[in-house]
């Protein structure tokens, strides 16, 4: 049976888990097996990546799970390769990504137009990661579109880590900064921001509205407003992209998934 290889840092977090479920569904339907190399289930003690890419018919890589050198190696060996939520600027490898520009556009519009917020804070993802950089660039564009003033201390480090995001928000609160909305580059950081604000006695959404990119059951439980693409769909599309390459189609560029705004309690407020 032809086989797809998949490289991921882990398969328990919700994004990875859901993408893999989508990949699995298409692989099964098209008669492909799936080998998953999940090398950092224990985040503190990652194994080396061990997937034998020569032994599979094509490779999928989730986000930045494989270093650029390995991607080049696989590409140079003419093994079909597709990336999920990632991009290699120097290799013509196709990817399936979400529409970050549209998503951030909808979040900022929601905060400014529906919630009448002006003093925005942005929590960054991981610099150098495609989604992260695109979301931040889109934020800069939207700030210009609505003529907002965002001092540089309102751009917080988050590294796609709830812990770091919470720390950054706490530090911002400690400086006495004035802000009335937070946009987080992913929803786990958004949830961390909501918790940190509330612990500091700041009312969400009355004093500060919080919104974030991406969606999952945790966001729903936390009542967090998000924009998200269907992550399962992203996995399916990535699998189709890879299988089409294996079957001889030359694909370059990125397949883009649209996102949808889901308004929940953390930004549900009548404009003043």
């Amino acid at each position: 049976m032809p086989t797809l290889g998949l490289i991921t840092n882990n398969q328990h977090e919700v994004f990875q888990r859901t993408v893999i479920a989508g990949v699995q569904a298409v692989a099964e339907a098209r008669g492909y097996g799936l080998i998953i190399d999940s090398y950092a289930e224990d985040e503190a003690n990652p194994r080396p990546i061990s997937l034998d890419y020569q032994a599979v018919d094509g490779v999928l890589v989730l986000a930045s799970a494989a270093p650029p050198d390995l991607l080049r190696e696989i590409y140079t060996a003419h093994i079909p390769l597709s990336l999920v939520s990632h991009q290699t600027p120097d290799l013509p490898v196709p990817a399936v990504i979400t529409d970050n520009q549209q998503g951030v556009g909808e979040l900022v519009k929601h905060l400014v137009v529906n919630c009448a917020r002006k003093n925005l804070v942005f929590i960054q993802g991981l610099p150098g990661q495609r989604d992260s950089d695109e979301r931040q660039r889109a934020f800069t564009h939207e700030v210009m579109r609505y003529n907002l003033i965002v001092p540089s201390k309102h751009i917080l480090r988050g590294d796609f880590s709830a812990f770091i995001a919470a720390q950054s928000v706490q530090q911002l609160i400690d400086t006495g900064a004035i802000f009335d909305a937070i946009i987080a580059s992913d929803y786990l950081m958004g949830i961390a921001a909501v918790e940190t604000l509330r612990e500091a006695g700041i009312a969400v959404p009355e004093d500060v509205a919080v919104v974030a990119f991406g969606d999952g059951s945790e966001a729903e439980t936390a009542g967090l407003t998000t924009v998200a693409a269907d992550v399962m769909e992203q996995g399916k599309r990535a699998a189709r992209q890879l299988i089409s390459q294996i079957e001889g189609l030359r694909i370059r560029g990125v397949t883009i998934l649209s996102v949808r705004l889901v308004v929940r309690e953390t930004s549900l407020i009548d404009p003043v």
Partner: peptide
């Protein structure tokens, strides 16, 4: 070539 790359990307879907 880029036009066919894009069309191929959609044919995959």
């Amino acid at each position: 070539e880029s036009v066919t790359d894009v069309i191929n990307g959609l044919i995959a879907q």
